[in-house]
Every structure is written in C-alpha cells, then in structure tokens.
Computed example of a mutant assay.
Amino acid sequence: MLRFSRNATGTLFVGGAMAVTLVSLAYPTMLGLTKVTTAQDRVIANTQWGPLTEQDRDFVVKVRAAGLWEYPVGQIGLQKGTTKAVITASQHLVDGHAALDTTCRKIAPLLNITLPNLPSPQQQGFVGQLKSESGKKFDTDFANILRMTHGSIFNTVAKIRSTTKNSLVRALADQANDTVLDHIKVMEATGLVDFDQTLFNQTTPPKLPDSDLTPPPPPAGQPQVVLTPPPNATSTPADINGLTGGGSGASPGASPAPTAS
C-alpha cells in the first residue's frame, strides 16, 4: 500500500503517483460576480453561443490549468525519458496541450472567462516531483501520474460534452475528449502503469484545501502565457471560426510559456 505524505507547500504525494485535481477553478470576482455558488448548473451569462454555466466556466479554466503543468512535464519527459514510449508520450503531451491552449485562449475572452497563467500549487507539485527524478523512477512516476490525472478528467469532459448548451464550450469539450483519450493511450503504451494503484488513486482522491487546488489569478496587466505548438505539431485547435466569424489564437502581448529546465 502506498503511503501519503505532505510537503511544505501542502501538495499531497501518493507514493509514486499523486492525487488528481478536480475542483472549482473559477475567479468570480474578476467576472463581476459578488457571490460564489455551489450550483454548478447555475447560468452565469447568456451569450450568443448559448448559456454559460458555472461548470462550463470551470471546465475552460481546468483545461487551461491542465496544460500549464502537463505541457512543461512533456518537455521534461523529452529530456529525461529513458524509453521510446515515454518520449512518445511526452511529445503527445506538448503537442496536444498546445492545441488545447490555443482553443482556450480563443474562447475565454468571448465568454468573459479569466484564465490563469500558473497551474495550482498541487499541479506545480507534480512538476516539481518529476523535475527532481530521473531514470526508471522518472519514467514510472511520469506514466502513473499522467494516467491517473487524465483518467479522472476524462469523466468530467464527458459530462460537460453531454450537458453544456454553449457551443464554444462544446467545441472545446470535443477537442479535449480526443486529446485526453490519446494521452491515456500513450501512457498505457509505456507498459509502466500500475492499474490497481492508479485506479484506486483516481477514484478515491484525498481531500485537499481549495488553496492547494486553485491556480492563482494572473496579476493585472501580466502578459498571457502561451503554450507554443512544437514545430512538428499534429494536433489542431478546435475549429470555431464558423461559430465566431473568425479570430486569432494568441492575445496581443502574449508571452511564450516558460520552458522546462
């Protein structure tokens, strides 16, 4: 049985794997709201693309936050992975999350959603753990952490896709569904996934304080971080031009994502 331990930042480590983040990630005060509700189906805005609910907004932020830690983890994997399968999985992380990030940055301003520039403290802990590891341990923890987190969010993507009435969120969910399934498959293809432990951690995550699970809001005026597609990118952003009448991906003044070191 794996043991749980907590580091100084409050991130919960689960042996060779880590607990998944699945909580509300919205910034209601930045959206002109004065009260947070627990009713995820509450409509917070009526847009030309359909009503936007609490869970719709949370989903867009979750996708963005996921990319802010999984993209650099993919970069780390390209440097540290010791098998061809781990290198391939790392390439898929960078490629897939760059495309998802482009879609998030396109639809967020249209829906008045504030996106983070950093992942949550827990997600930053994922990156820190893998940065500190090497060799077989890195490969194993990489595969199990990413298989667990993608397996957990997969159900959330399905729920959003089946319930949202907002066409922009629906387009993001379609893309996220394909990307998450692809990432699940490449993690499994490493042959390193401990399914018993991963599924246990996936279905019984520990309860952590909201401060560990919520990405910090970006400081006013800070350029938006961009997850740059790799030169050989094969993943493409969702085609929302027919819904929006066109538009570009990166926001003016956007800054490139920090690279793993």
Results as ranks from 00 to 15, higher is better:
1 M>Y: 00
4 F>I: 15
6 R>P: 02
8 A>N: 11
9 T>D: 11
11 T>K: 10
12 L>C: 06
16 G>S: 05
19 A>S: 14
22 L>I: 05
26 A>D: 12
34 T>W: 03
34 T>E: 12
35 K>E: 13
35 K>F: 00
40 Q>G: 08
42 R>G: 03
42 R>E: 15
45 A>R: 14
46 N>L: 04
46 N>K: 11
47 T>Q: 04
49 W>I: 02
53 T>V: 07
53 T>D: 10
60 V>K: 04
63 V>C: 09
63 V>S: 12
65 A>K: 02
66 A>G: 12
68 L>P: 06
73 V>D: 14
74 G>P: 09
75 Q>H: 11
77 G>P: 01
77 G>L: 01
78 L>C: 03
78 L>M: 12
79 Q>T: 11
83 T>P: 09
84 K>L: 07
87 I>Q: 14
88 T>Q: 13
92 H>M: 11
96 G>I: 01
98 A>D: 07
100 L>C: 12
102 T>P: 01
103 T>E: 10
104 C>I: 04
108 A>P: 13
113 I>F: 04
119 P>G: 06
121 P>S: 07
124 Q>E: 09
125 G>R: 06
125 G>F: 06
126 F>Y: 15
126 F>A: 08
126 F>D: 15
128 G>R: 15
130 L>P: 07
130 L>I: 03
132 S>Y: 07
133 E>L: 15
134 S>Y: 04
135 G>L: 08
135 G>M: 05
142 F>I: 02
145 I>F: 10
145 I>P: 08
149 T>Q: 13
150 H>C: 03
150 H>I: 02
152 S>C: 01
152 S>Y: 03
153 I>K: 00
155 N>S: 14
156 T>E: 13
158 A>G: 04
159 K>N: 11
159 K>I: 02
159 K>Y: 15
163 T>H: 02
163 T>L: 01
166 N>Y: 03
168 L>G: 07
169 V>T: 05
171 A>R: 09
171 A>W: 12
175 Q>Y: 01
179 T>W: 01
180 V>H: 00
186 V>G: 00
188 E>L: 08
188 E>S: 06
189 A>S: 14
190 T>Q: 04
190 T>H: 03
194 D>A: 06
196 D>T: 08
200 F>Y: 13
200 F>N: 09
202 Q>A: 12
203 T>Y: 00
204 T>L: 00
206 P>C: 03
206 P>T: 04
206 P>A: 06
207 K>D: 13
208 L>V: 02
210 D>I: 15
216 P>V: 14
216 P>C: 10
219 P>S: 11
219 P>T: 09
219 P>C: 06
223 P>G: 08
226 V>T: 09
227 L>F: 00
228 T>W: 09
229 P>F: 05
231 P>T: 07
237 P>V: 07
239 D>K: 14
240 I>A: 09
241 N>T: 13
242 G>C: 02
243 L>E: 08
249 G>M: 03
250 A>T: 08
251 S>W: 14
257 A>N: 05
257 A>W: 02
258 P>M: 13
258 P>A: 13
261 S>L: 12
